[in-house]
């Protein structure tokens, strides 16, 4: 089995990508979520996460979250080197439990919103965002 120069380079690049990527995800998403929920069960639904299906530039991805009745909402980017993104704590004068911001995403991944409700329960929503150019730099 002969490899042409082109095939060899392609294989080499593929191997490098495979070996590098899993390590960057190592900082555990589960730990970050557990730190917020205290290990409580998280149900689906009850929170709305609006994110683009495809983000051309991972440096600034607009997202909106809303969870009526929540006291806090945390956003987690499962594929980022540091999964924690932002935590919104709503005060007594918040007119609605919703907020919008712009986040960085290292690559195509699941973005998770977890809301802490007033009764102490937790709900989540997940949205897949495809990222064309990652936002973490070198």
């Amino acid at each position: 089995m002969d490899f042409s120069r082109r095939e060899t380079i392609a294989l080499g690049l593929g191997a490098v990508a495979l070996s590098v990527m899993p390590f960057r995800v190592a900082a555990s998403t589960e730990e970050v979520i557990a730190g917020f929920t205290g290990g409580a069960d998280v149900a689906d639904g009850g929170v709305t996460l609006t994110a683009p299906e495809i983000a051309e530039n991972g440096n600034t991805v607009p997202i909106t979250v809303a969870a009526p009745g929540a006291v806090a909402i945390m956003i987690v980017a499962t594929g980022n080197p540091e999964p924690g993104v932002v935590t919104f704590n709503f005060g007594e004068l918040a007119a609605s439990q919703s907020a919008a911001t712009r986040i960085r995403l290292a690559g195509t991944q699941d973005v998770v919103a977890i809301a802490k409700m007033a009764d102490g329960s937790f709900v989540r929503a997940t949205s897949v965002v495809k990222v064309t150019i990652g936002g973490c730099g070198g």
């Binding site: 704590n89 005060g91 918040a94 911001t101 960085r104």
Partner: peptide, 23 residues
């Protein structure tokens, strides 16, 4: 009185932007 208190991490974009509702 508090309206919102946001804890941010490095994954927030350059020139942080926030939008929210207040009473």
């Amino acid at each position: 009185k508090s309206v919102i208190d946001i804890k941010t991490e490095p994954a927030i974009s350059t020139n942080p932007y926030f939008q929210f509702d207040a009473t």
